[in-house]
Design a protein around this nucleic acid. Structure first.
Length: 289
DNA sequence: CACCAGGCAAGCC
DNA sequence: GGCTTGCATGGT
């Protein structure tokens, strides 16, 4: 991967292991939107970025070397060797088929609070509507940021959301999840759940800490740990993952064993990466139930 | 009209 | 502990 500055932009060359579509469409994030065939725009920690991929090059527009180093390098997980991970996981025959289709997926290091709220909203919901609800949440309670004459919004912070009532949130149409959003914001704003400390905790302890929040169960906690706290062994099990495991590993039979344990034995520390390749593969191939 | 969507909490036993 | 049910909203 060759990275350099050209005018106001940062260019990444030789980026076979970084594919924008696969990274933004594999279900880990909800705030990157297509601007055109080859471009996306998104907001991370209050900064808007327009990014494009064409002719084997990725361009981060209007980005300084300093911004790239301090924000985006970590966010896009650019210091990790994904080729090595793919090679290791390809020993598994199912992943050997799934990885080529999702090649270039990178696990984003997303903002922890945003990840917590986003995956609370994801419960018993579908991806287009999850994105809509989150967008309305940001428009209503985030800060406006302008770029290229367009309005973007930062993700609201815990203090802001902690001060809201269910009535205040009615407009975003989160349904029964509104009370969980407020509970999460209150526990985080008050320090009952310490976000910064979760980074230092081991996987199991961190998961239990997150489960103190209403609306955070096994699956949501695993997503938060994987996408918001860099716990890369986490293996979130949702309907899609269950479906693809049943189809490819259990001969179409209903799974009765502990799936997390199954994943741990099979994928170990690389569980999160395996989960992302499988999720993308399952959705792209629309595995029937 | 049912049934489903990146599940979860609460209420049972 | 495990199992069942209701849940807001919008799409098919």
């Amino acid at each position: 991967m060759n990275i350099y500055q050209e005018k106001n932009n940062i260019i990444i060359e030789n980026c076979e292991e970084f594919d924008l579509v696969h990274t933004f469409e594999c279900g880990q994030c909800f705030r990157w939107n297509k601007l055109s065939e080859s471009e996306y725009a998104g907001v991370h920690n209050g900064t808007v970025l327009r990014i494009g991929q064409a002719d084997g090059k990725i361009t981060l527009y209007d980005t300084t070397k300093e911004q790239f180093e301090s924000i985006w390098k970590k966010y896009f997980d650019l210091e990790r060797n994904y080729k090595q991970i793919q090679t290791a996981l390809s020993c598994d025959s199912v992943l050997a088929r799934a990885i080529p289709e999702g090649r270039g997926i990178r696990i984003l290091a997303q903002n922890p609070f945003e990840t917590i709220i986003s995956f609370i909203i994801s419960a018993n919901n579908n991806i287009p509507r999850i994105k809509l609800i989150i967008e309305r949440l940001c428009e209503s309670f985030g800060e406006k940021i302008e770029l290229d004459g367009k309005a973007y919004y930062s993700f609201p912070n815990a203090d802001t959301l902690a001060s809201l009532s269910r009535e205040d949130l009615a407009g975003i149409k989160a349904g029964f999840r509104d009370k969980y959003i407020i509970d999460a914001a209150k526990k985080i704003a008050s320090g009952e759940v310490l976000i910064d400390k979760i980074f230092e905790l081991d996987y199991e302890t961190a998961k239990n800490e997150l489960k103190k929040i209403k609306g955070v169960g096994e699956k949501v906690a695993n997503c938060i740990l994987l996408f918001g706290f860099g716990k890369l062994s986490a293996f979130p099990v949702d309907v899609w993952i269950r479906r693809i495991l049943e189809h490819y590993y259990f001969g179409g039979e209903e799974i009765k064993c502990d799936i997390e344990q199954f994943a741990k034995e099979r994928f170990g520390e690389l569980g999160g990466f395996a989960q992302q390749y499988l999720f993308y593969y399952a959705r792209e191939n629309k595995i029937a139930k």
